[in-house]
């Protein structure tokens, strides 16, 4: 608790991180604005909220997926905070003042955890409210179906933030760490493409997808699959065109395990870097 307080004190007194955190939660709220989108063009009468995106239990899937896109806001805060600890040499001063390296890392991890918990609660409450207003089904059983999307959401955020933590400790400069993150995303895609092209020739027993699911960013992405093709409106459209999506949208616990293992590795790796380096 003391360690969390220390980190929150640092965050709270920085104007930039305050603005970003407020901005983040405001944006989550703004998903409610989506519900007010109405298009009336002669015969076409489109009201987004009535397309079923806020129906229970689909809303858990939809909201967790869309709101998870905002995670990049907090990622910037993490990367900037660590970068500043290095460039202002306050990391060094914290250690001299009697924080151990493990404790320093724990302040960061606790702050991430606190943020993930608050963000997940936010998503839960907002979905509950929006669903309460717009959902066609209001039986308790249906409302609390598919809550594993919230778990997937929390794990996804935690995995992503610990990855950012690791990168920023590795690279020490915030701009480069963010650049590296983008580069990593692209690299995963390229490696996947190469594997799809060549891997089956080399090792026929393994498919590229089997390997790809273990890549950190892809594993995080796989936690919550895109919800759009699951919408009945789009399903109907596809049916008419003679195509059917047969996709598994559920949350895979194997996937959750992969991301948790990655998070653990990122935290261990961060500690290893901190421990080994001279400051």
């Amino acid at each position: 608790m003391r360690l969390l307080q220390i980190e929150l004190y640092k965050l709270w007194h920085s104007r930039i991180s305050k603005v970003l955190i407020f901005g983040y939660f405001l944006l989550i709220f703004s998903i409610a604005i989506l519900s007010t989108i109405k298009v009336e063009l002669g015969p076409i009468n489109f009201h987004l909220a009535e397309q079923g995106i806020f129906n229970f239990p689909y809303i858990w899937h939809f909201n967790t997926f869309v709101i998870a896109l905002l995670k990049v806001f907090f990622a910037i805060i993490i990367v900037a905070m660590i970068g500043n600890e290095y460039s202002n040499k306050t990391l060094k001063q914290n250690l001299i003042d009697g924080l151990s390296k493990a404790e320093f890392l724990r302040t960061k991890v606790y702050a991430i955890l606190a943020f993930v918990v608050i963000s997940t609660l936010f998503v839960f409450i907002i979905s509950l409210i929006l669903g309460g207003i717009y959902s066609d089904y209001n039986e308790l059983q249906i409302i609390f179906m598919d809550l594993e999307y919230l778990l997937a959401y929390a794990v996804k955020l935690f995995g992503f933030f610990t990855f950012c933590l690791f990168l920023s400790i590795l690279i020490k400069r915030s701009a480069f760490a963010l650049g590296f993150l983008a580069l990593w995303q692209v690299t995963e895609g390229i490696v996947f493409g190469l594997m799809k092209w060549k891997l089956s020739d080399l090792i026929p027993q393994i498919s590229a997808e089997q390997v790809f699911q273990f890549f950190p960013l892809n594993a995080m992405g796989n936690l919550i699959k895109e919800p759009f093709t699951r919408l009945s409106a789009i399903q109907n459209l596809a049916d008419q065109m003679g195509e059917a999506f047969t996709k598994d949208y559920s949350v895979s616990f194997f996937n959750i395990a992969i991301v948790i293992v990655w998070s653990a590795l990122f935290i261990r790796g961060s500690y290893f870097l901190l421990k080994r380096r001279d400051l």
Binding site: K10, H13, S14, R15, N84, N88, K89, T90, K92, Q93, L95, I96, D97, G98
Partner: peptide, 16 residues
């Protein structure tokens, strides 16, 4: 180190 006070080279604080 919590019972020690130390200043190394340059003062390092949070500028903001």
């Amino acid at each position: 180190l919590k019972k020690i006070g130390a200043i190394i080279e340059r003062p390092n604080f949070y500028p903001y």
